[in-house]
Design a protein around this nucleic acid. Sequence first.
DNA 1: CTGTTAGCGCATTCAG
DNA 2: CTGAATGCGCTAACAG
Lengths: 339, 339
Amino acid sequence: MISHDDQGRGVTLKDVAQAAGVSVSTASRVLDERNRPSTSSAATRVRLAADELGYRRNAVASSLRRGETGTLGVLVPRLTDTVMALMFEAIERAARARRHFALVATCGDDPQEETRATETLLDRGVDTVILATARLDDTLPASLRRRRIPHALVLRSDGVSPSSVGDDDAGGFLAVRHLIDLGHRRIGLLNGPAYTSTGRDRRAGAERALREAGIEPDPALSCSVGYGVSDGIDAGRHLLELPQRPTAIFAANDNLAIGVQTAARLLGYVPGRDISIVGYNDIPLVAQLPVPLTSVRTAFDSIAATALELATGSDVRGEPIRRALPTLIPRESTKRLAP
Amino acid sequence: MISHDDQGRGVTLKDVAQAAGVSVSTASRVLDERNRPSTSSAATRVRLAADELGYRRNAVASSLRRGETGTLGVLVPRLTDTVMALMFEAIERAARARRHFALVATCGDDPQEETRATETLLDRGVDTVILATARLDDTLPASLRRRRIPHALVLRSDGVSPSSVGDDDAGGFLAVRHLIDLGHRRIGLLNGPAYTSTGRDRRAGAERALREAGIEPDPALSCSVGYGVSDGIDAGRHLLELPQRPTAIFAANDNLAIGVQTAARLLGYVPGRDISIVGYNDIPLVAQLPVPLTSVRTAFDSIAATALELATGSDVRGEPIRRALPTLIPRESTKRLAP
DNA sequence: CTGTTAGCGCATTCAG
DNA sequence: CTGAATGCGCTAACAG
């Protein structure tokens, strides 16, 4: 038996057409996945020949002619951030479902590199750009808008370009509401960076929950920091060393929450027993920590699907900023406050 | 002032040639980055015109003609595995240094999906394939060899295809030698899967270190499991509940080590005090745990650079399997055994 | 160093 | 439904 997979590469449409005894254009039409499959005898012969020879369409040549590549470019700051990796994998799944192909580039936190990477993606013919990087003050989305390049922002929004985000306000609310329901009143807020919509909105939701419960947010219990584990360690230590330390802390992402757990341990507190902690995003790791972390789960798949809809304009009506509702996953890092 | 970046897309070589008053082929040659820059007046005019119009080469069309895309495809099981993300980012850096572009696809642990994803990459015209997936019994590398597709394996090897791996044997040795130097004699080995070269080699190195110290490896203290945190929890619990429990454990990757830390905590042991633990890969997180983890650091950048050399055949001589030496990073999870 | 000519592999006209 | 002809944008081979 001939293993198709050893040939294939190098077999052109012409070869298939020849083998099937038709012209290339006929072969092209038959093999065009956008037409509904014809049942004519010629069509059958073409499909057979293509299969026989192990034909694979040359996507590069095809793109050149079609003017589109069926590819979407995703830009993330870094893939070693599990949240970004999760987001990308979700986008990849969503793209695959539409028979598209997703491609990533990373750009760190440098706006210049962000632009460069986007140009590189565009040069490689991506039809659509998905940005997971947008700071609130970012200029790239505006540039894409001017150039009419189909695009969408995910996870963060600049308030103008089509954006598919988690409902961060609702997430912040859920987290703090959960702590209040457990009897906590002195609740520390470890907010993300103020220049991100996530940091801003999660904080707003958290403070709303406090106020609704009749608790005035205490500035002494609130810090805005970065999104790294070490930020969580520093800020966590700070909060836990206060004379009137909080009994619970809401951290704006899981890294921060892990850092708080570390800080707690270093100070001799046991997470879940001496201090309740809620994280955000529910990255897989947090369920496996010594004290499994309560976390707000972001609906990555839903966000990804919506982003593709928005970017490809297959759904142009309505709000350009869509918010996917998160869910709270309670685990052992949050416990009822002993009366 | 006209912002170039608002046009650019859609400007073809023809436009540039026209503006510079030369033929397209001249323009093409001038702008060909592989030639060393000409200083003729025409060349200068072309460069000026290109700049003026904001010309960007259409990489798709260029690829079609050149027959190569300057792109390399990387296949990883999943990007949410930090080790894979680190590996990809290193490859990306190495590719960029050679003015190439790296592209990832994920395939989970499914050999069929692995083949499918590779074909997709190949369809998109990647010149080179880098596999971070190869099981020892994988058939894909053989298929790539038959088809003469430039490729290399990273992190794992099948023993035949060009491979750039960490020296896992040396790494296992370093880890256990470190524990022995601290006075440990009852050392548990948490090996990775036997179907991976990493699992096999790290174990071999570890056992070599034991034997050199006159310690016969105890089968009761050795388990082979997967590479997930939960594997580490289960196996860690098992080892720690033995009547004669080990005083130290070498885990074949950081996930496993994190799992062991979790297991230790659950049983009331404090990592570093009651049980010494060494991990492998030194992912960024482990330095930030409550008890920072001693780990064997894999030289991802070196592995990436070597992989590109091997794959592109720019260095065909010598061993097709190159091993990068790892280094041990001692932290607080390992302590001298109290006499 | 230059311009002319001829494709890369495919998808889309336009006639039939 | 079919086939012949044309060109997507760029590069390579050839002659000047």
